[in-house]
Design a protein around this nucleic acid. Structure first.
Lengths: 257, 257
DNA sequence: TTCCAGCCTTGATCTATGTCAGGGACGATG
DNA sequence: CATCGTCCCTGACATAGATCAAGGCTGGAA
């Protein structure tokens, strides 16, 4: 699948590629290729050695981990997210599996090339550090949410975050299947169902993938959102400006759970 | 407190500083200072803006997060660990609090200087990326452990990891108070106590801070350690060689919980 | 020495969460 | 249209984990 000019322009706007010199960018793109995958394709299995940096141009990718026949979703990535950057930088094997959830267009950049150009373009290298730092901080937030909050509270905060992202509409659309959301939030689908039921007392009405937050104040009092855990950066502020560089480094869809 | 030559030599061996040029290193050190803190000193509170990169030269530092009057320990750092690097790179505020557990000697490097020299020394910048990538992957491991395993399994794996670290001796010494360990492992002290009691059936004998693993095979069958979650890199292999750069990037004491 | 505070353990109890089983709604397919 | 599969919800139950209360141990301070 040929890489269109428009695609190039889009990825060029990614903070960590924006910082790259013309030459660096050209070299990164030269060995890159763009591929379309159907839903459900496994791009990478945990333990695999990693040869490419992946960039989601379209679709959704799920990052998951397994142990002892159990699986958990660690992140859900939408367009203009990169993934597996840490493994590429260290030339190490993947700690997570990556699977497409929808049909997805993925740009793949040679890891070897990436490491090489990093040694020659300090500004680019710095931007990669920022990208990684943002990923790290996203995970710290998730970890805090996971260890400090109960399931209902995690869900309540998820809903509030989605609400902000979706323009503060009273009714939001869940961007993923409920069982996927459950795994992301660290609970079983059954439990998520019950958690939604509990939230009825707080003005939350569920209708399939549509969730109406009737009394935001009440829900917020339960959720107790925290700037050091939750990341409410709205859609149209993502990926722009230093203040928000950290907020949604490269995973617009990654949820702080 | 003056910075001794011996201290400089030690930090120079840190992978991410080893990659720095003489000039870069000199500039980093010029504005740095070394300070001794008593046990229990708060170096940084979550939400604070971060002006320095911290390096533990001696002692122990605890990284913790709070929400709704609850607290959890996210990492425990021993000598030659850096911390708060991600916030420094992004010039963002801290997501975790940092507190000394023992009397500790801490080297503080100006964050502003660090960012500046990164723009001029690509090799150094790359090494910082590797450091951050290692931190990120450490957290991914923790997250998987937290979401996929139960408390007893987390403890069992912790013990096995410690055993490897402490030279495969049958009896290991817990490096921290049990209530601290409990928080790190994501459980209450009471529960940790009971978890230890359960492990008696698997040949684990506890005597204060001394833990004897009588039948490693039996314990291992319970723990099901996994190379993609647990990090068994022994003490004398830390911080050396590319293969292990990732393993214990900068937190020799950080536990994958 | 005596006293006290902090740490750890233990038992009883409660709550949150997981597991299992059943059934309804919906959409794809024949 | 009928059927099947998937997703989701719900109830009953089991288990893990948290909480509360009490008591033992130990090490430092008076």
């Amino acid at each position: 699948m040929p890489i269109k000019e428009a695609d190039l322009a889009r990825v060029r706007e990614l903070p960590f590629l924006k910082a790259a010199s013309e030459d660096t960018f050209r070299r990164l793109i030269q060995g890159a290729f763009l591929q379309r995958f159907p839903a459900g394709t496994t791009l990478l299995t945990e333990g695999d050695s990693v040869d490419f940096l992946y960039i989601v141009l379209d679709g959704t990718v799920e990052l998951s981990g397994t142990w002892n026949d159990k699986e958990t979703i660690l992140a859900l990535l939408g367009p203009l997210s990169t993934f597996i950057l840490a493994a590429v930088v260290l030339d190490a094997s993947a700690l997570m599996s990556a699977t497409t959830r929808d049909r997805s267009d993925i740009l793949m950049i040679s890891g070897e090339t990436l490491r090489r150009v990093m040694h020659e373009d300090a500004a680019f290298s710095f931007a990669v550090s920022q990208e990684l730092a943002g990923c790290y901080r996203g995970l710290v937030r998730s970890m805090k949410s996971q260890k400090l909050r109960g399931g209902i509270e995690r869900l309540a905060n998820y809903l509030i975050t989605q609400r902000v992202r979706q323009g503060n509409a009273e009714t939001i659309t869940l961007p993923h299947e409920k069982r996927v959301l459950a795994s992301l939030l660290g609970m079983t689908p059954e439990n998520l169902s019950r958690a939604f039921a509990s939230l009825a007392d707080y003005g939350v009405v569920v209708n399939g993938p549509l969730v109406t937050i009737g009394r935001l104040v009440v829900l917020t009092r339960l959720a107790k959102p925290d700037a050091l855990i939750d990341n409410h950066a709205p859609d149209d502020m993502r990926g722009r400006g230093k203040a928000l560089l950290e907020a949604w480094p490269n995973q617009p869809e990654r949820m702080t759970v």
